[in-house]
């Protein structure tokens, strides 16, 4: 994907540049609102990662200008704050998603994919190894055996398979399952992951779900 990153903080900008390039995207990085706006208006990007606090022109102004000119490029906002009011204001100004700084990088990747894919329909059937997930009848099969999963376990598998090969953080899973993040020390996901592993082990796929320390889970090899 062709991505435009508008971010004045050198450290964050560099990490975004490196991380996104390594993930196989083509990055244009500008450090202030004015240049960013020029870039956004002059070239066609698949998505824009926009910091809210920028010199010259604030992120909110850039966003409003882009939308005013009729550009429908998906925009992902980044901010250091993160109050409800600010989030609402950003989404109302035409942002597609919103991330509070100090985010997990896999989450950024996933969200970028989500906002660029929103228009296209995800495929109904997904396969990893011998496991096959069919969204049309919400069944997961391994060969001819059907896995008896709870709705929570099914949703976990659904997200992991959609993001196969990539890290899915606990936060992403929480939001996917229960519409809200849980930042407490109790690991509310682990219980379900453990049960899933047990069930997968019975059908001969004990290593399918892997824990990535400090980050989350992934399907198959990292």
């Amino acid at each position: 994907m062709k991505l435009l990153v508008i971010e004045d903080n050198p450290a964050t900008g560099k990490h975004l540049d490196t991380g996104l390039t390594e993930a196989g995207h083509e990055i244009t990085w500008t450090r202030d609102g004015k240049n960013g706006l020029d870039q956004a208006l002059s070239r066609q990007y698949d998505a824009i990662v926009l910091d809210l606090m920028l010199p010259e022109l604030s992120g909110m102004e850039v966003l409003k200008e882009i939308r005013k000119r009729g550009h429908r490029t998906p925009v992902l906002l980044l901010t250091a704050l993160g109050t409800v009011e600010e989030r609402v204001a950003g989404l109302q100004a035409g942002a597609d998603d919103y991330m509070v700084k100090n985010f997990a990088f896999p989450e950024l990747l996933a969200r970028l994919e989500t906002i660029t894919r929103r228009a296209s329909t995800p495929s109904l059937v997904n396969e990893v190894g011998s496991i096959k997930l069919d969204l049309s009848n919400r069944r997961i099969t391994c060969g001819l055996t059907e896995l008896q999963l709870t709705p929570t376990e099914f949703s976990i598998m659904e997200l992991l398979m959609r993001q196969k090969g990539q890290v899915v953080t606990r936060k992403m899973l929480c939001e996917h399952l229960w519409d809200a993040d849980w930042e407490g020390t109790t690991n509310v996901i682990e219980v379900h992951i453990n049960r899933l592993r047990t069930k997968l082990e019975k059908v001969g796929e004990p290593q399918l779900i892997q824990t990535v320390r400090g980050r989350g889970y992934t399907l198959g090899a990292v």
Binding site: G82, V100, N102, E183, R213, G214, R215
Partner: peptide, 27 residues
């Protein structure tokens, strides 16, 4: 990996501090 884990713990703490500041100001 260990550092990433500690970072995410720190993030939790900082987020909680921010939430406290936000609710303290009666916003």
């Amino acid at each position: 990996e260990e550092t990433a884990e500690q970072c995410s713990n720190l993030t939790t703490l900082v987020n909680q501090l921010l939430l406290l500041a936000e609710t303290d100001a009666r916003h």
